[in-house]
Design a protein around this nucleic acid. Structure first.
Length: 596
DNA sequence: GCGATCACGC
DNA sequence: CACGAACGTGATCGCC
């Protein structure tokens, strides 16, 4: 039903207001919630029935429509009613748009995209179209049939109200049907707690973080861009000089010709299509010619400038100087979040040049940035799930875990652990989490495979609990075809019993890694929800800004610093109860680089 | 449009 | 004999 009049709007309200569950779906002029406007909104409260309220169709001779101001009070009476359970598909998007209209959905009950993700995080697509075919056996028209694609694409505002209404109503209708279908499946598979207590409450937390954004020092970034540009250009000339000709340095193919044919440097490694020119390779051949070092430098600067400096400047809001990422909750196979446009989860930190980028992320006047990161969360999770005595002991005595591992595998006292031995132990510790093999370790440490195997054998001799856990998780995976995390997040492993050794090995590494990485993801999600709740309850102005897997970043007004630091640390450390201590390091600073 | 390569994070 | 770290996003090239 299309709602064009006040009378019809009231009929809709009467109908919806007494519903237990409704679905909502917005049509907008785009997919960036901060850069689009509402075109229409649809609701459904029973199968095969839905309402569509057009408000922003702008084509020639479009009928008179209700305004957003006229419908807002009605939307509020429905969506802010705590007794009406609201569902949507990717409801974080609708939440953002409605919030801009001054409407805050009160009872976000169910997101079918997130539910699909919980049912099977490895699924290629969680789109409504895709789920409708699979679960409802109904195909849906794609949005392209309405707005076209490519450069001739129009927006929903240009689409005929009846066509748009039909489309939008079907979205709302199928969303509610799917929600009602999914709920008992979640219960039956015992992932209802994860879904209702973690993933659903997280939606509003993420929406708030996205909406807040983080402040950038634009002037500084522009200066940095110039600085990098100059050095890129001079390095470029040096490279052409050394190569004896101009070529496209960014083309691995053209670069291969220069390095391996013209300069006759040795081929270290091959790729599927040619000869590798990655940093490892360049490092090896830099002994024989000055060009490779220049290339490494060129690549570093080029990467930093194009991926970080320039793209951040393109995406920053010039009015507020803040940049708003989009956190995706349904992408990774392990339960981690991902971040796009821009990806703020891979801002450089390791090299001095890279760190210059971090300096551009700053706090608002009279605020500081607070970063709180879990100390060795993955290894603590491993200690918990494996119940390995040596590993647990190290954490109970708050030892440096890599030094402790070095002591165990080399049979020495802590004083005897050199930086080199600690590095080896650290690599092995990471390797364990990744389901390492002797080949992989050898590669990583630049040692021979036999030596690597000795390290591994030694590790498992000392950490027999870890060996036992790996055996158990692999046998569980082989028997059940899936693995799960502490909070019952599941990941299917259809290839765990494959006859292809390589395929099977890959599944085995996943079987080991996912319960660890996924449990860490569970833990930080619970912490985020609890911190968000606490900050609201205490009416604090502090804002959560970013999550980087084991790290949370906040913007904190100066008067709140001490109180908020305590809250953050406590909530993160007690989000779940592990059999080893969980520790969080807190730092503060006025930019994301200089924190202490 | 898409796969491959490379490089950034955890 | 080859493969060979787990999980992501993005810029760029070059083929189709």
């Amino acid at each position: 039903k299309i709602v064009l009049t006040r009378e019809s709007l009231m009929n809709m309200k009467e109908d919806l207001i007494s519903s237990e569950k409704i679905s909502v779906d917005l049509e907008t002029t785009g997919i960036d919630p901060f850069n689009c406007s509402i075109v229409g909104i649809s609701f459904s409260n029973q199968p095969s029935k839905a309402w569509y309220i057009p408000v922003g169709h702008k084509y020639l001779n479009a009928p008179m429509q209700l305004s957003t101001d006229e419908i807002a009070p009605v939307l509020r009476s429905i969506l802010e009613n705590p007794d009406i359970k609201v569902c949507g598909h990717n409801i974080k998007f609708d939440f953002h748009i409605l919030k801009k209209l001054g409407i805050k959905i009160k009872n976000i009950w169910f997101d079918t995209m997130v539910a699909s993700y919980c049912l099977n995080p490895s699924r290629k697509s969680h789109s409504l179209k895709n789920l409708s075919i699979e679960y409802l056996n109904k195909s849906m028209a794609t949005i392209e049939t309405l707005i076209g694609k490519g450069k001739n694409q129009i927006t929903m505002a240009d689409v005929d109200i009846n066509s748009a209404g039909k489309y939008s109503c079907q979205d709302a209708d199928f969303t509610l049907q799917l929600a009602c279908l999914f709920e008992p499946i979640l219960v039956e598979k015992k992932i209802d707690k994860l879904f209702f207590d973690v993933e659903m409450p997280l939606i509003e937390v993420l929406a708030d973080m996205e909406e807040t954004g983080i402040k950038l020092d634009i002037e500084y970034l522009e200066k940095l861009s110039d600085e990098f540009k100059k050095e890129i250009e001079s390095t470029e000339s040096e490279i052409y000089q050394l190569a004896g000709e101009n070529f496209n340095i960014n083309s691995p193919k053209q670069l291969s010709y220069i390095l391996f044919e013209k300069l006759k440097l040795p081929v270290i490694r091959k790729t599927k299509t040619g000869r590798s020119t990655d940093e490892d390779v360049l490092n090896v051949i830099s002994q024989q010619h000055p060009l490779p070092s220049k290339l490494i430098r060129y690549r570093e600067l080029q990467k930093l400038k194009s991926t970080y400096i320039d793209s951040l400047l393109n995406l920053v809001d010039r009015n507020t100087s803040r940049i708003h990422t989009s956190f995706n909750q349904t992408v990774t196979a392990t339960g981690r979040l991902s971040s796009t446009e821009p990806n703020l989860q891979n801002i450089p930190i390791r090299t001095p040049e890279g760190k210059k980028i971090r300096r551009a992320f700053i706090s608002e006047e009279n605020c500081v940035l607070v970063s709180a990161d879990y100390s060795q969360i993955d290894l603590r999770v491993l200690a918990h799930v494996s119940a390995d005595e040596a590993l647990k002991d190290a954490f109970f005595h708050n030892k440096d875990i890599h030094t402790s591992t070095a002591c165990e595998i080399f049979g020495i006292t802590p004083e005897k652990v050199t930086p080199e031995l600690r590095r080896i132990a650290k690599t092995i510790n990471f390797g364990i989490i990744y389901g390492m093999s002797s080949y992989g370790l050898a590669q990583e440490l630049n040692i021979d495979q036999k030596q690597a195997q000795e390290y591994i054998d030694n590790y498992f001799k000392k950490y027999s609990g870890v060996r036992k856990w790996i055996d158990e998780i692999l046998s569980f995976a082989r028997k059940n075809g899936y693995v799960k995390t502490l909070l019952n997040r599941i990941r299917y492993l259809p290839e765990i019993n494959s006859n292809n050794g390589q395929v099977r090995s890959f599944a085995e590494r996943i079987a080991i890694n996912t319960p660890i990485q996924g449990t860490s993801a569970d833990i930080i999600k619970v912490a985020m929800i609890n911190i968000y709740k606490k900050l609201n309850e205490e009416k604090l102005k502090t804002k959560m800004l970013l999550q980087v897997h084991d790290d949370l970043l906040f913007e904190v007004p100066e008067p709140e610093i001490e109180k908020v630091k305590k809250i953050i640390k406590k909530e993160m450390e007690t989000a779940v109860n592990l059999s080893v201590p969980v520790l969080v390091d807190i730092k503060t600073g006025h930019n994301w680089r200089d924190m202490e």
